[in-house]
Design a binder for these strands. Structure first.
Lengths: 202, 202
DNA sequence: AACTTTTTCGACTATTAGTCGATTTTTTGA
DNA sequence: TCAAAAAATCGACTAATAGTCGAAAAAGTT
């Protein structure tokens, strides 16, 4: 009842690395068990299927990202900055490994879609609270907050995570965010300074 | 040089149906050739790989949708209605088969993502022209049109194609569209009447 | 020590995408 | 018209895959 959990974590870590470096489809169960030094039967003692293991790996990834997001929310920075910080934290970006690159690879569509879906599911309620705080402070003015927050996340993900972007994309993103949340013009323009210009298309 | 093209089209049609009804991953090459009554070698005479065939099937799907979109654009309806019509035409929706349902199935992520990506690539320029027309007529007022159009497509796709939606989603979509394009409040509220309420979540 | 439960093993199966050389059918041009 | 060239078809074969299963070893329990 104890050793088992450890082995499971160990397998998840190995799979996590291999999925990211080679893609989910290109990582065979055989190669995972070889890397782990266990037999086929052992693998299937811990995981129902390869896909179920992928779910578990994703849950693991999400968990740590949500922790970061929660910390940011509890911190004491201005609401607009807080929102942007949470949105950024939700993309692996500069973090540990080239996770972002890995997720961009076409052989990782499945993983990519699943991560995004779960992340949005879990971050929308968190971020909605922050926006609500902004509304009560008079920084924002809008209704249907969760629906708006979702749009924010979808677009930021599409613009900044899934592809290369231009200055125009940033300008439109800022404009859209302000209008979507009912903020004064200029409220979100600090975003421009945060962007890593090296990631930008010329 | 003639018979070949016909066979190719025939195979594409068969694959199209099978991919949609069973999902891409669940459709084996063996089952396709059985359905078509040909040998393995013949299949690979026409297609490099199963995935390359998927691309071809998608191109086929896109092509017909783009034709429809182009017709709408040439038609003589008001600009705001035109935009919404194009966006709707871009989702298979009520069309022929339960394509939409098929693309929603988790076993079709790959196909789904590829269709969306290609569709956006091809529709953004078309729709941008329409918006430009709207700007010159004073209905809209905005810059960076292609970037804004992309957002419109991404969000409409996420909201109306990928999941069930609520009244709030519609309200936010209308509000966002108006603000994104710089239209007067109410310009896009006709959208509400177009929505098939039966598709809505309760 | 005798037992039960948890964990591990690896040979085995069934299915898959893709290869290849041989063969048949169709086209072409002299 | 007919033979050579090109296009199209065939199906047995390979290599890799995810997943199964019953037996055995290890760890816990009494």
């Amino acid at each position: 009842m104890k050793k088992g959990e450890k082995r499971k974590q160990e397998l998840l870590k190995i799979a996590y690395k291999m999925f990211l470096s080679q893609g989910y489809e290109n990582t065979s169960v055989d190669s995972i068990i070889e890397e782990a030094g266990i037999a086929k039967g052992t693998y299937y003692y811990y995981f129902e299927s390869k896909e179920q293991m992928l779910e578990a790996v994703i849950d693991m990834m999400i968990e740590s990202e949500v922790e970061t997001a929660a910390q940011i929310i509890e911190s004491d920075i201005p609401v607009p900055q807080k929102i942007v910080a949470v949105i950024s934290s939700v993309k692996p970006a500069e973090a540990e490994q080239p996770i972002q690159d890995a997720l961009m690879q076409p052989e990782n569509v499945l993983m990519h879609v699943k991560v995004r879906k779960k992340l949005i599911e879990v971050v929308v309620p968190l971020l909605s609270e922050v926006v609500k705080e902004g509304v009560s402070k008079g920084i924002f003015a809008c209704d249907n907050i969760p629906e708006r927050v979702r749009i924010l996340l979808i677009i930021s993900n599409d613009t900044f995570n899934d592809r290369t972007f231009t200055e125009n994309d940033i300008a439109v993103f800022i404009d859209m965010t302000e209008k979507l949340l009912g903020a004064d013009k200029g409220t979100m323009s600090f975003i421009y300074d945060l962007i890593d210009k090296s990631e930008m298309e010329v």
